[in-house]
Design a protein around this nucleic acid. Structure first.
Lengths: 273, 273
DNA sequence: AAGTGGTCTAGACCACTTT
DNA sequence: AAGTGGTCTAGACCACTTC
């Protein structure tokens, strides 16, 4: 993290080898010198420093981060370099820029973020907020497969959640979740049921874990007897099955989720671009 | 297209009101003055001019476009402004940058592009190229729904294609397509069958229509008798149904596609980011 | 008026590719 | 050596928000 690729300045102001030392100003424990010796552009190093401040909670979701000018001074680089770093963070939805106001830490407790991880849309009309019914919330031991995907040891504590989501009275989504017990200690059915807003908003504001991105594998499956009862459909009804792995900062997997979607009046909306 | 937001130059070189006149250099018929009077940043205007050259075929898929320096001279703006325009075009996959070589028009006839619109992956192992079997290729008249989605008139000519894709002998995808007859005049089963590479590659190189982006609606459905025969499964087997609308330059819809995927050994891979 | 992000310019040098 | 995109700086001004 200490090397700077070059020093093309003739003036004395913007000296080199500064990004690393400036990194020390970001507070918490940075990994010491002996890291990977690969070169990277200055703006990538700045981006990494800013990301560390986000991850450490120095700037929390919804909060204003320092201005580009201030960050440029702090890291001893030009505003343009800070700008390019923040541009990429904004493209990854880690921060949100607002002209005239500043740059804010992205939060799932915002209208704009609500449909980034909820791709099920009604075939007709505008989306409504679903009713949540928590069927089961308990702490269990991780099975081998769950442990592998969450990078835990087999038998480690895991929070298991099973819930049913209904749109205007129509049960539509049956979901199971597995979360690392370590990260979600006080998570109970009550906390979940009473929380207004998206589940990821609760995770980020109450448990300090913010979901950054996710991968999903989609399949068509037949409803078994138990599932059919919850969704009030015939056994064997085709359902859309979405197996999700969600990641937080540092590409660390922190959630498994299996969703079974009844797609008679809803569809999974996707953009290929 | 003629206005330039401001003229912050004190030197005489980079004059104003030049982007518009430079646009005339791109050859084909630009829309005259009376367009919308909304302001837009210079780099957005440059981006629009470059996009027009892409759309008009001045630079074809796979070809090298002029260097940033040359474009800056042509449009009478700084290299940085051209750079920002091309940055966005690269982010939208309209062009591909290669350091030291130049900027190229993106093409579906490239390994890198093969999996942008083909999201079905094997559960195990690496993806293989499927075998194509064309069941039906004919010209028909557009039904109301097809006409509406393709922005045609009901009854206009449409090319209809039905094909079966198999991976290592296992029939997996049954697909139907509807294409505007106007744009795909010489499209026959022979042309399709003999073409090596992705179908979108054929469309762009033989018919001058390049797919830029698409939307998909995914549902789980039950295989009916006909579909079950093609895919060699029992009637009622759950299948993943993907209804796609593809767009070319100018957000013009130019393809409808319904894919039925057998997801016992395959899944639809999606990234939420 | 002051502060923020957004745009634009000009010039330098680096990394990579080709000649 | 020459040409390309990639990085970095410095400074100017614009658009928007707040005080």
């Amino acid at each position: 993290m200490n090397q700077v690729p070059s020093n093309p300045n003739s003036n004395g102001a913007a000296g080199n080898s500064t990004a690393g030392s400036a990194g020390g100003a970001s507070g918490s424990g940075l990994s010491p010198a002996g890291a990977s010796p690969t070169f990277s552009p200055l703006y990538q190093q700045i981006k990494a420093l800013i990301t560390q401040s986000l991850q450490s909670g120095e700037w929390k979701p919804g909060e204003l981060i320092p201005s580009e000018v201030e960050l440029a001074g702090r890291y001893k680089v030009s505003q343009g370099t800070v700008r390019k770093a923040i541009d990429e963070l904004a493209a990854e939805h880690l921060v949100v820029r607002r002209q005239g106001k500043g740059t804010f830490v992205a939060s799932h407790n915002e209208a704009r973020a609500h449909y980034r991880f909820l791709k099920l849309m009604p075939d007709e009309g505008v989306p409504h907020q679903p009713d949540h019914h928590y069927i089961e919330v308990k702490r269990i031991r991780a099975a081998a497969e769950v442990a592998r995907l969450l990078d835990l040891k087999s038998g480690d504590a895991v929070v298991y959640i099973k819930r049913l989501l209904s749109f205007e009275g129509a049960p539509t989504i049956l979901e199971e979740l597995w979360l690392p017990g370590q990260l979600f200690k006080g998570l109970t059915a009550e906390r979940l049921a009473e929380y207004k807003g998206p589940m990821y908003g609760l995770f980020e504001s109450e448990f300090g874990t913010r979901m950054i991105r996710a991968t999903e594998k989609l399949r068509a499956v037949a409803a078994d007897a138990g599932v059919a009862t919850y969704l009030k459909v015939a056994e064997g009804t085709p359902l859309l099955c979405a197996d999700r792995v969600s990641f937080t900062y540092g590409d660390k997997a922190v959630e498994l989720r299996r969703g079974l979607y009844l797609t008679t009046a809803f569809h999974y909306q996707n953009e290929l671009s």
